[in-house]
Nucleic acid binder design. Structure first.
Length: 166
DNA sequence: TAGGCCATCTGGTCCT
DNA sequence: AGGACCAGATGGCCTA
């Protein structure tokens, strides 16, 4: 199901500023979507699984619906954050297609290649010996990462990433 | 018109 | 327990 009816170019601005404008339409569409889903699930194995799961759940239909809406909203916010991160990444990786936006997969691929080439440039410049990294265990990549952490250690996101990397 | 890309919803699972 | 994360499904928009 999709509740957005705007074009791609409009979407970019919608993402940043017009959440409230969309919410009314979203609610209307949600009702439509739920009806469609109920029809789809009617009478098959999945529906019995769902009803079994619902039987365990103490929430009333109304509460369940409310909680669903809340998690949809959280999920939307999460995806917006993810997209902001993609946008930030687009802005730092050099590419030739300045006129149209890189797709997500292109962004990730270019970023990977960019990191690889920067790493090899640094390696070449230091002739394979980076003084600050000598005597530290681990791969070259992890040494660079340690250096990066020293520069950006105070950032919350990085702390979060560190935790996840462990 | 098919295929690519995307936003959103959804239910399951993991984590705190 | 509740939020975060994930992957699958769905459907809209755009382009070749």
């Amino acid at each position: 199901m999709k509740t957005k009816t705007k074009g791609k170019k409009q979407r970019q601005t919608v993402d940043k500023e017009a959440f409230s404008e969309e919410s009314a339409m979203r609610k209307k569409e949600l009702a439509k979507c739920l009806r469609r889903r109920e029809r789809k699930n009617g009478g098959n194995k999945e529906s019995s699984k769902i009803t079994a799961a619902r039987a365990k759940c103490p929430w009333s239909t109304k509460d369940r619906h409310l909680r669903r809406l809340e998690s949809n909203e959280r999920e939307r916010q999460r995806m917006h954050k993810l997209n902001n991160a993609f946008q930030a990444l687009r802005e730092v990786i050099p590419h030739v297609r300045a006129e149209n936006k890189l797709s997500k997969i292109e962004t990730l691929t270019l970023a990977k290649n960019y990191i690889k080439s920067l790493t090899s440039i640094i390696l070449n410049m230091s002739n394979g010996h980076f003084p600050a990294a000598e005597g530290m265990g681990g791969t070259w990549g992890s040494k660079l990462y340690q250096h990066y952490q020293q520069q950006h250690g105070e950032d919350d996101h990085e702390e979060h990433l560190q935790k996840r990397a462990m």
